[in-house]
């Protein structure tokens, strides 16, 4: 079946058969990934969703408890604190990381000397093992008056020593800074790849029309990067809502104690699942997380559709 013949076909039956064949081709593309994904990831995930309405400790038989798990978590201070912290963390981290990553990508897409070096350096924090970089970071941002950062702040801006991750007032800020530092290289790489998709002729055309750098950015780069930005926003949001190990490493410190000023959703889920073995409650918590992220995704998704229809 060639494209030339299909154009002539008019009968409905033929059209249906064509559609079916097209769908089959499409499914054949998806199948290798989807089958593995459905069996090993989607299955357990659906199970976890059902588990949210059960009481289960991993060993004894399941017990249906209705919405009891949700009642429990929404009356748990620790859960509410984790929800609040996660939202605050995301509100700051998502836009800041996005802007810095995009700025860096554009900067490092120019023909400048040492470009490879700078690109690699930016990607470093993401690659390095968390145990190591968190230890470094904790040394620099130590609450001690003699710490590197505290000394710097005192000498440059006369700011008295801050307690960083050790104080309920500054712990979230410290985590946000760390996570931007660690992850911006990751999103920069995505943007860098996205920038390669932009047709250079568009810039040339804009240049002929007399557009300046800002206008080129606004009318060529931003719209052309829309699919990439969609991806970055969704992934950033999801990753922010799923933040866990960074918080554990920074706020947990040497005794692993995370109090209400720093607890995040996934840490709460982890605690319920593997310390208290309330797998039902853990699942209920992740269903809440899922609902929030799904809502954000759908809003973004319809935004992307509108763009595509323009």
């Amino acid at each position: 079946m060639t494209a030339a013949t299909t154009v002539k076909t008019t009968s409905v039956e033929e059209a249906n058969r064509r559609k079916l064949k097209q769908a089959l081709v499409a499914y054949s593309f998806i199948a290798p990934n989807f089958i593995g994904f459905a069996i090993f990831t989607l299955g357990p995930i659906i199970l976890a969703m059902i588990m949210a309405f059960m009481e289960w400790d991993g060993s004894n038989p399941w017990k249906f408890v209705g919405i009891q798990n949700f009642v429990t978590i929404f009356s748990d201070d620790r859960f509410l604190a984790s929800l609040k912290n996660t939202v605050i963390y995301s509100i700051f981290t998502v836009p800041l990381t996005l802007m810095i990553a995009l700025g860096l990508a554009i900067l490092l897409n120019q023909k400048i000397k040492g470009r490879n070096f700078f690109r690699t350096v930016t990607f470093f924090p993401y690659v390095a093992s968390l145990v190591a970089v968190a230890a470094v970071w904790n040394m620099l941002f130590t609450p001690a008056k003699g710490g590197v950062i505290n000394q710097l702040l005192l000498n440059l801006f006369h700011i008295p020593a801050l307690k960083w991750a050790a104080s309920p007032k500054t712990v979230l800020m410290t985590i946000i800074m760390f996570s931007i530092w660690k992850n911006m290289g990751y999103y920069m790489v995505i943007y860098l790849a996205g920038l390669q998709n932009i047709n250079t002729e568009l810039y040339e055309a804009a240049g002929l029309d007399g557009a300046n750098v800002w206008q080129k950015f606004k009318y060529v780069t931003v719209p052309q990067l829309k699919p990439t930005t969609f991806f970055v926003i969704i992934m950033l949001t999801i990753n922010c809502f799923k933040v866990y190990d960074i918080v554990y490493m920074l706020a947990g410190g040497s005794n692993g104690v995370i109090n209400k000023s720093a607890i995040v959703l996934v840490y709460y889920i982890y605690e319920e699942a593997f310390r208290n073995w309330n797998l039902g409650i853990a699942s209920a918590g992740s269903l809440v997380l899922f609902a929030i992220v799904l809502a954000i995704t759908i809003i973004q998704f319809s935004g992307e559709k509108n763009y595509a229809n323009d």
Partner: peptide, 12 residues
């Protein structure tokens, strides 16, 4: 020693 420093720094 100060608890806060010990905690964040992870001094064993």
């Amino acid at each position: 020693m100060d608890y806060a420093t010990l905690k964040t720094q992870g001094l064993h």
